[in-house]
Amino acid sequence: MADPRLAARHGAGTYDILLRSGRQRVTVPVEVTALPEREPGDNLAYGEKATASSTHGRFDPCGAVDGDSAWQNWSTSTGWNDGTSRVFPDWLAVEWPKPERIERVEIHTYATPTSPASRQGIKDFDVQVREGGTWTTVREFRNNTAAHITASFPVRETDSVRVVVHSSNSGDYSRILELEAYGPAT
């Protein structure tokens, strides 16, 4: 899947991507479609710019804002995994080109039927918003064992939301399948 932010930066259309391996070169056309217009109640993080403190392998931050929270797709690079084993804090953020009104953040941490969030998910973390260049914690979570976490708070106008992870239940990595942000319904 092509990065949905390409459409915002370059416009929807077909782009040629040049792939090189040794002396071989192949040009592959990639179709980029624009994100659909948002409706009230839509996930405002979907397809937006995502950044992180570090990244492990192919688990790029944009995988955590791709609209896919299914653990079954973890191996296809959906979701984010930090790149510093046993070193905390880690953070994952989503940013908007202009401030948005946000009142709820939903986090889907890594969990499977055989490896639940109580063993693999994020444990201690803060949800923060950036206002005027300053990060403010709007919710704190400690000893989390849930796979899907909802952080509700009074409406804030912000250009970025981030999750700062202080520890995971596995003690090694921070893993987030999807980060979602929602504004007021009206």
Rank of each mutant, 00 (worst) to 15 (best):
D60R: 03
D3I: 05
A181F: 02
R20P: 07
T76G: 10
N143D: 13
E131C: 13
T84K: 10
N143W: 00
D60L: 14
G47E: 13
R119S: 15
A2I: 09
D172R: 08
V129P: 09
D42H: 12
D68C: 04
P184I: 06
L19M: 10
R38Y: 10
G13R: 04
S115G: 11
Y15A: 05
Q120P: 13
R38G: 06
L18F: 06
E178R: 02
A52E: 07
A185V: 10
T150F: 01
A7V: 01
R142W: 14
Y110L: 08
G132V: 06
G132Y: 06
K123N: 13
G57P: 09
G13H: 01
A70N: 12
G183I: 01
S174E: 02
K123E: 14
L44Q: 14
G13T: 03
Q120L: 15
T136V: 11
S85L: 05
G183T: 01
S167P: 09
E39D: 14
P40I: 11
E103S: 02
E106S: 13
G171I: 10
G67E: 03
Q120Y: 14
H108Y: 08
E180S: 03
V138E: 08
E106G: 10
D66V: 09
V138G: 07
H10K: 12
P113S: 07
V28E: 12
T33I: 00
S152N: 14
R130K: 05
G22H: 00
S170N: 13
V105W: 05
W71K: 01
A45M: 08
E178C: 04
P36L: 08
H10N: 15
I102R: 01
G121K: 02
R101Q: 09
A45P: 11
R156P: 04
F153H: 06
I107S: 04
